[in-house]
Structures are given as C-alpha cells and as structure tokens.
Design a protein around this nucleic acid. Structure first.
Length: 463
RNA sequence: GGCCCUAUCGUCUAAUGGUUAGGACAGCGCCCUCUCACGGCACAAAUCGGGGUUCGACUCCCCGUAGGGUCACCA
C-alpha cells in the first residue's frame, strides 16, 4: 500500500517536457537546441519528452517539413518518445471540448467582425480579465505582465479551428506537461497562455525561457547570415554529436573546463540552473573545432563509413587501391575538420601522388634548399634506397622505417635527406612525412619512386 | 513607440561581496620539425557608463546606454 502511494506521488512528479515544432520549415538550428535542452532536462531527471507538431496553420504546414524535422531529429539521435507524436491538426475534438466549455462559462465569446481582407465573419475571442500575471521563470526569475494591453485576443477562427495559443495550452494540460522550456521569444506569449490556463482550470507548469541564438551581427539567426536548417549541417559534413555538443554549450556549461561531450555526458551533467540569460552568437569556427575533436575520436572504420561518399569512386571501388586507402585514412582523419573537406582534398589532388603514377620529376623541386647539388642528392637517395631495400616487406612500417633512416638522416643532414626522399615519394611540397609515405606506398612502390628520382637526378640536364 | 528580457576578452563562457578577473575558439609569436598537419609553450585581449549599498563590488539596488524579443484570425 505504501509502495503504491509512493509510486503515485512519484508519478506525479515525473517530468514531462515537449518539443513542439511547427512544420512550416526545415528544423531550424535554434529549434534543434530547444529540442536538445528539453531532451537533456527530461533525460537527466528520468522524465520524458513529447514531440508535438503544431500545425494549426493549415495553409503553411507541410508534410515535407514534418519529414525534415523527423529526419533531423533522428539524425541528431534525439529519440523523442516516438510512440507519442502528436499533431494538433488531429486534435480538433479536444480543443472543441474546451472551447465549448469556455463559451458556456462566458470566458470566451463569438465576435462578429471583418477579417483582414474586409470579409464578414466571426472569431472566438477570449474574455480578458485584465489582471496582472506574475510567473517565475527558472532562468530569469519573476516576470510580471499587465495583461490589459492584450485585449480580448482571438483564440479560434471557429469552433473547429483554434489558434496556436489555445491549442498549446490545451495540449500542455492534456499531455501533463510539467516543464515548458522554450525560446526567449515566447516570454511575451506566456501571460496570455497563463490566462487561458486559468480559464480552463489547468495547473501552471514551470517555465524556462532559453536565450536566443544570434548571428554574428547579433541579429536573429536567419538564412541570410548562415545555414539555419539542421540538415544543412549534415550535408556540410558536421557530425551530429558535434552539433549537439556545440549547441549545448551555446548558453549552457557545466561549470567545469570540459568542452567535448558525448550525448550521455551531456545528459549526466546537464543542469538547467546553469543556463545563461543573454543571447549567444553562433560561431562557426568553434563548431568546426568541436567537430574536429569529435572526428579525431572516431574509430577508423566509422570515419571511413562517414567519408566514403566523398572519396572518388575509382579509389573506393578498386580492390587494389582499398588497402592503400586504408593506410592513408589516419592521415586524412587527422586533418579533417568537416567531412566535406575530404572531397575537397581529393579534388585538389592532395592525395593523387598516392594512387596515380607520378609524372617526371622536376629536378629543382627534388633539391633541399641548403643542398643544391643533384649528384649529392642522388647519393643520399641511393643510401636511403639501400637502407630500405634491406627492410623486409613485413617490417615496412612507419616506425620501423623511421628507426632505420633516422641516424643516417641526422648525420647527413635531415633536410638534405628527408626533403628529397619525401618529394621523391609524393612530388608535393606539402605532404605527410616520408616515413608515413613509405609505409603507405609499400616497399615496392617506395623503392620504385626512389629509383626513378635517383635516375632523374643523375641524368639531369638542367637544374 | 508600448511592454518584456539581457549586458565579463572579437566569440562561447568561469568567478553567485574579497581571485594577479580563469578557460576555450579565433588571432599573433615561439618550440617541435624535411614540408604540411598534429602537439607543446607564451603573448595580446573583457567586467557598457553613472550613481548608490558596503570595510570591500563583475557580483546587490537605482538611473542611463546599448542590444535583443514581442506587440496577427503565424507559430
């Protein structure tokens, strides 16, 4: 018996939050953050979060946007309680019930008037008691409004067609919402919603109004000043966990110096009391850094799966090249900030030396800046060739090669040895170091290139 | 304009009456080094202004100022 009572009281205190997008556009990155904070708060407290499509504007709501929002949400890994997805367009009966009740109570009335196009019609207006409303915001403290200035606001176009404010209040009540976490832009909507709440006899949930995400010029983040659709970030090669990580840090921090978080760490450490009051500028540079950090921590296979689409088909599909690609992967992973970089790197031919045969050498480029004698460079490369020849295929690894070459290079002048070696292998002024290159190219490939470079140096006509 | 919210380095932020105002991103410089990247180490950089309260204010109060939000039969 006692247990039952305990369970019931506990049930009462179970936290329920919600994410209520209106399907009139793709999932805005700012809304993604609102979803995240609702999610984190609910999960941290063992509560649940409800997804509710606010599609009372029938003209502007589109199925495709609903799909985009769902798509973006599942990409982010924010699994709402999917069995509980609501659409306001499917809840007309419920709203009607409450509307009729208000009409009966004379808390609302039908008003005959012209609409904005000058047509005769009628709407349902709320009978405003003109009181002062004070509510406590979890983030901002007490906020007071005089509702007089609201007038008798419209709550429905007709008995079967309610307006946002009314639908929201009814839904939040019917769905048992305990906490309403939403953008700061809703602060001024709160008093009128509380008025409706009082009229239908609903308890008041706890409010928390999040600071807004701002563009670089501190204006509202919009299409003009950057990508706003969450799925745009996916297309640009951001990791969902990086987006989540960055979004969480925009307006919140755990009070420690940790900056890189997994979703479960965020859930664990989330504390709504540590949310900032002021708006936060969306800084793409920091997002990129966070993305890079998350990429670094990816297992190589996961990374490969993610960037596969950005790697030229010829390399991806040819079995002979796949082994090379696999060895090259860590090099790519280390320098990738966003996934699309990989495509750009391949397009720029940054790795072409690795998969294609090299064109004839330009002697000048093979020479180290302090060692301009082709014949001397040839001698050094010959020595390198000799050393590498003695390494078995099996031992042809970066570490082993470096160990074998290092002393010679140090004695003979590292630049004078390593630069020609590296250039001989890559034909690029910028590349990974020659030991990595050798390991990737394999013994045969490495020796062939060295030999070719030595030949070029020995037979040079012009320097 | 009315109402409401906000205000620490360029940006995200820490410090909830007592700190040389801390960290991160970006920037700059140096080191590592054959180049690039990685990494390491320095430097530069802030409490919007004015009044209070207090022995003492980034911190509390008031007034300015600035920015933002909102004022629909959109959500």
């Amino acid at each position: 018996m006692l247990e039952l009572i305990l369970e019931m009281t506990e049930k009462q205190h179970d936290i329920i939050t919600r994410f209520p997008p209106s399907p009139t556009g793709k999932l805005h990155i700012g809304n993604a953050r609102t979803a995240l904070f609702n999610y984190l708060f609910a999960k941290h407290n063992g509560g649940k979060i409800i997804l509710r499509f606010e599609d009372t504007d029938r003209a502007r709501s589109k199925k495709e946007y609903e799909e985009n929002i769902l798509d973006a949400l599942s990409w982010l890994g924010l699994d709402m309680e999917f069995p509980e997805i609501y659409r306001q367009s499917e809840r007309t009966e419920i709203y009607r019930k409450h509307l009729e009740h208000l009409l009966e109570k004379n808390a609302a009335y039908i008003s005959n008037e012209k609409n904005e196009r000058g047509e005769e019609g009628s709407v349902i207006r709320f009978r405003n008691p003109n009181t002062k409303i004070t509510f406590t915001d979890l983030i901002r403290g007490e906020i007071t409004f005089d509702t007089k200035e609201l007038g008798d606001f419209v709550i429905a176009r007709s008995i079967d067609n309610v307006i946002y404010h009314f639908a929201v209040v009814v839904d939040d009540f019917e769905m048992g919402l305990t906490h309403i976490i939403r953008g700061e832009d809703h602060i001024s909507n709160t008093p009128r919603q509380i008025l409706i709440q009082q009229a239908i006899g609903a308890p008041r949930p706890v409010y928390a109004h999040l600071p807004l995400i701002l563009a670089k010029d501190r204006s509202k983040l919009s299409k003009r000043n950057g990508a706003v659709a969450t799925t745009d970030y996916r297309e640009q090669g951001y990791l969902p966990q990086a987006i989540l990580n960055y979004l969480a840090l925009l307006g919140w921090n755990p009070g420690t110096e940790q900056e890189i978080f997994t979703l479960s760490q965020l859930i664990e450490q989330f504390d709504i009391n540590k949310i900032q009051k002021g708006g936060a500028v969306f800084d793409i540079e920091k997002l990129k850094w966070i993305n890079k950090e998350h990429i670094k921590h990816l297992p190589p296979d996961t990374f490969l799966a993610m960037v596969e689409q950005y790697i030229p088909e010829t390399i991806r599909n040819e079995v002979a090249l796949q082994g090379k690609l696999h060895k090259l992967l860590p090099v790519i992973q280390e320098k990738t900030e966003i996934l699309c970089d990989v495509k750009q790197q391949f397009d720029a031919g940054e790795y072409s030396y690795f998969f294609d045969d090299l064109p004839p050498y330009t002697i000048d480029k093979l020479l180290w800046k302090d060692e301009r004698e082709p014949i001397k460079a040839a001698e050094k490369l010959s020595k390198v060739f000799e050393i590498l020849s003695e390494i078995s295929e099996k031992n042809f690894s970066e570490i082993f090669i470096k160990e074998k070459i290092w002393d010679f290079a140090t004695n003979a002048g590292r630049g004078a040895v390593l630069w020609p070696m590296r250039y001989a292998l890559s034909q690029r002024e910028k590349s990974p170091d020659p030991f990595i290159l050798s390991a990737i190219l394999g013994k045969e490939g490495t020796l062939a290139r060295l030999k070719k470079a030595i030949g070029a140096l020995e037979n040079h006509k012009t320097v």
